[in-house]
Design a protein around this nucleic acid. Sequence first.
DNA 1: GGATGGTCTGACCAGTAGTCATGGACAATA
DNA 2: TATTGTCCATGACTACTGGTCAGACCATCC
Lengths: 241, 241
Amino acid sequence: MSSSLTHSQPSASESVRARSEAKRARIVDVAMRHFAEQGYHQARVQDMAAELGIAKGSVFQHFGSKERLFLAAYKRAVTSFPGWLDVPGETREQGFFATVRYWLLRTVDTLREDWVPYRVALIGNYGTDLGLKRQINRFLVNEDPYRLAAFVKFGVDRGELRRDVDQDFVASFLDWTWERFQDALLTEELDPGLFRRHGGRPERTEARIEEFLRLLRSAIGAPQPLAPPKAAPKKARQARR
Amino acid sequence: MSSSLTHSQPSASESVRARSEAKRARIVDVAMRHFAEQGYHQARVQDMAAELGIAKGSVFQHFGSKERLFLAAYKRAVTSFPGWLDVPGETREQGFFATVRYWLLRTVDTLREDWVPYRVALIGNYGTDLGLKRQINRFLVNEDPYRLAAFVKFGVDRGELRRDVDQDFVASFLDWTWERFQDALLTEELDPGLFRRHGGRPERTEARIEEFLRLLRSAIGAPQPLAPPKAAPKKARQARR
DNA sequence: GGATGGTCTGACCAGTAGTCATGGACAATA
DNA sequence: TATTGTCCATGACTACTGGTCAGACCATCC
């Protein structure tokens, strides 16, 4: 990116640089909120500048275009999320699907505290131009911010995931279903009507999660995970109406 | 809007109505192409009007806003697609997953002939505002244009789908995975780089489809599709195709 | 012919992303 | 302290778009 590291100027250009960096960060902060609250197209660069107490032109001087500003906000939002394997050691020891469950349960709670980054990610995934989406995708492919690949490898190494299918494909499958399910789950309270199923009662959330995990395990789990002599768990069959 | 249907005037208001309808149809036709080629935001209402040889104002008179114009285009695109069960009787008899395979194979070919409706659908799903997406979603929920519910019921009735999970949830799961896989598959040649996996060789398409079907069948298929005939099948390890 | 109602028009408006010449703040130098 | 040069903030400005509307236009109906 920059060549600041080659020169070891102590304070001069360094502080200037830090100053500029700090300003960029402030702008991105405000931009995230605006994008999250208004959506990409409704958000006004002018409003962000006003809130920051700076001129609109400054924003463009720093980011060049609204698209790139959003991209910066998107990247910050996504990189602020933890990776798949950033779970308590205890959960990690319980394995792959326990980790998936952990995140599903956790995300619902986390969301209530701070939904801004999630909303920005959502907008990046569904609510911008296809051109922007292409750049977003490139970022996701190159950076793998959630460390999905390592997570799948983790599952395979533990023998929890099937090996008769290309590992990348398993990762994709997890990615697809996880993302859509999470969106359905989260937007249910955050933005009702945005995704398919509209009626779900919130108190059924945990049951839905277990249902999802069952399907997911069937799909990508290793063939016989429950073969050995477990003490016959009485599978409650009350699911059917 | 108008109360023409209450009066049974034969030709007068009827022909006017037809005329108006025809014009709307022409506009939607052109709009579809423009949206498909340029994307939602890059497409200019002015350009569409110019191509049609009419004034921009007329477009707005008929549709009120660009959003509603796109919505009309989207609806036409989606309803132009066949439903899940609109397959040759032969395929239908082969069952649920054979039908899924049929559509996966078929869509790739169909796309090359006419990619406009597909592109419009894609833009509706990923490349507009969240507000528009909400309306799109409402349409999909209310109309179920692909007859997904009936298709899933078909699979359940045939005993090909598992019954221990809510039927709606199975439908959602199929919807999610199908859509993402299809997008990945189709955009691979149509728009490389739009979705996650970028490297796939086109000649591997059929293999990928079989891989997908295997995962899908594991996820939502009935537990033991190959149990009955043999006396004591020893837990077949190999997933049957 | 004249009245009537809907349709088309294009000039017009409001509002936004993006530009740029200007000027100021600040650090390095003398 | 004065000078100089670099970078950045500024806000007036442009280009262009979606959207509006009063009136022209036109087909139908008395």
